[in-house]
Amino acid sequence: MLIPWPYPDEGGYRPEPPGPPPDDEDARLAALVAQRLSSDWTTRRQQIVVTVQNRVVILAGVVAGPEARRVAGEIAWDVGGVGDVCNALRLAGARRPRR
């Protein structure tokens, strides 16, 4: 028994379509927010991790005080193209409540 195998030039050969392109906009926004956080004197030496998903900036880590937390959120909001900000920064020395 002989099974025909189509040549790539024939109409029966259809390669898999490429997957969705990586979201370069999220990477660009993360880089801009991180750059602005590192250049501001209030947030420069803080332990802030910036993640962006679907134009939502997620700030995580530990900051020295409430002023640094507030400024970090404002800086993230000021970047053009940001749709929302989730400020999950914790204050250094703040204890978590016991369960």
Score class of each variant (00 low, 15 high):
Met1Gln: 03
Leu2Asp: 03
Pro4Val: 04
Trp5Phe: 12
Pro6Tyr: 09
Pro6Phe: 06
Tyr7Glu: 15
Tyr7Ile: 07
Pro8Gly: 02
Asp9Pro: 02
Asp9Met: 08
Tyr13His: 11
Arg14Ser: 05
Arg14Pro: 00
Glu16Arg: 13
Glu16Met: 10
Glu16Pro: 03
Pro17Asp: 04
Gly19Met: 12
Pro20Gly: 05
Pro21Gly: 08
Pro21Phe: 08
Asp23Ala: 10
Asp26Ala: 04
Arg28Val: 07
Arg28Cys: 05
Leu29Pro: 00
Leu29Gly: 00
Leu29Ala: 01
Ala30Lys: 04
Ala30Gln: 04
Ala31Trp: 09
Ala31Tyr: 09
Leu32Tyr: 02
Val33Gly: 00
Gln35Ile: 11
Gln35Phe: 09
Arg36Tyr: 06
Arg36His: 11
Arg36Val: 04
Ser38Arg: 09
Ser39Asn: 04
Trp41Leu: 12
Trp41Arg: 11
Gln46Asn: 07
Gln46Ile: 09
Gln46Ser: 15
Gln47Ile: 04
Ile48Thr: 02
Val49Asp: 13
Val50Tyr: 04
Gln53Phe: 10
Gln53His: 11
Asn54Ile: 03
Arg55Lys: 12
Arg55Trp: 10
Val57Glu: 01
Val57Asn: 00
Ile58Leu: 08
Leu59His: 04
Leu59Arg: 01
Leu59Ser: 00
Ala60Tyr: 03
Ala60Leu: 03
Ala60Asn: 12
Gly61Thr: 01
Gly61Cys: 03
Val63Phe: 11
Val63Thr: 04
Ala64Asp: 14
Pro66Phe: 13
Arg69Trp: 12
Arg70Asp: 15
Arg70Gly: 05
Gly73Cys: 07
Glu74Ala: 11
Ile75Gly: 02
Ile75Gln: 00
Ala76Lys: 00
Ala76Pro: 00
Trp77Ala: 06
Val79Ala: 02
Val79Asp: 00
Gly81His: 11
Gly81Ala: 14
Val82Phe: 12
Val82Met: 09
Asp84Pro: 02
Asp84Trp: 13
Val85Lys: 02
Val85Asp: 01
Cys86Arg: 08
Leu89Met: 09
Leu91Trp: 13
Gly93Ala: 02
Arg95Glu: 15
Arg95Phe: 14
Pro97Trp: 07
Pro97Gln: 05
Pro97Val: 01
Pro97Met: 04
